[in-house]
Amino acid sequence: MTPEPDLRDALLAAVPSLRAFAISLSGQVDRADDLVQDTLLRALSNLHRFERGTNLNAWLFTILRNLFHSEYRKRRREVEDPDGSYAGRLKVQPEQGARLDFEDFRSALAKLPPDQREALLLVGASGFSYEEAAHICGCAVGTIKSRVNRARFRLASLLNVDDVDDLGPDSMTRAALQNS
């Protein structure tokens, strides 16, 4: 199989979204870039497994996600405090003119369990459908829905969005009105 220029362009075009996902998932730019690099290398050596005409991005995200999790499991055995160190490293993150308001959001995101974080990132930010996200994570659609739901709820309470801890009649009424 020879690398077609089209495919090379498609891979390059996928890099920004792979990086955004990897950075948000791992909380570290360096580690994210290593993940993206490993993803591209693995994709290139497994190109024969890619079904033409299917979603290339979803395939690449699947590879990246699996690499992240096998690495995460390995690290958890080795490293003392993976969650704490993740949150700490996130603060190094803001680069070129990153807005300060994202700081709170990023550290809240870091507090989510990895499976909830990934589900929310896939569906809420990367533009995948629930079905595609389920495919990427190798689980049922209902599991993804439930993880996204829990992730949102937890973020809202960590960020004190609209005082979700205080579920008074006002917010209930508002929700009811907006759903109608």
Binding site: F105, G124, R152, L159, V161, D162, V164, S171, A175, Q178
Partner: peptide, 13 residues
């Protein structure tokens, strides 16, 4: 979540 909060979380994300 009520939809207002859900939208805010989504927008920030």
């Amino acid at each position: 979540l009520d939809s207002t909060s859900q939208k805010r979380i989504g927008d920030q994300l």
